[in-house]
């Protein structure tokens, strides 16, 4: 399943990574070599094998419905690049 530049551009777009032409060409090579290595998986027959998402067969613990957090806005916004009136600022979002 070899990738082409358009596939890399598509992935870059989904991942919001800006790539220039040169980057994209280089990544096509890298990714194809990695995927060629990954493609060894196809040699294994995994019919009827359940996928494993977590290494331990544990189940989700549930938290009691209690408010445990208090307002720390100023504290958390100290590391924010752009805030005003307590809001995070981003370029105008057009709907």
């Amino acid at each position: 399943m070899a990738l082409e530049q358009a596939d890399v551009q598509r992935a870059a777009h989904l991942a919001r990574l800006g790539l220039n032409e040169g980057d994209a060409a280089r990544y096509v090579d890298d990714l194809n070599r990695i995927l060629a290595m990954v493609d060894q998986l196809q040699r294994l027959d995994t019919t009827d094998i359940a996928p494993l998402s977590h290494p331990l067969d544990a189940t989700q613990r549930l938290r009691a419905d209690e408010v445990t957090e208090s307002d720390q806005r100023d504290h958390f916004q100290r590391c924010a690049p752009a805030v005003e009136n307590g809001l995070y600022l981003v370029p105008r979002v057009v709907e």
Partner: peptide, 8 residues
């Protein structure tokens, strides 16, 4: 596929 292999 990778998750199936992970189980193996």
């Amino acid at each position: 596929k990778a998750q199936q292999v992970r189980r193996l």
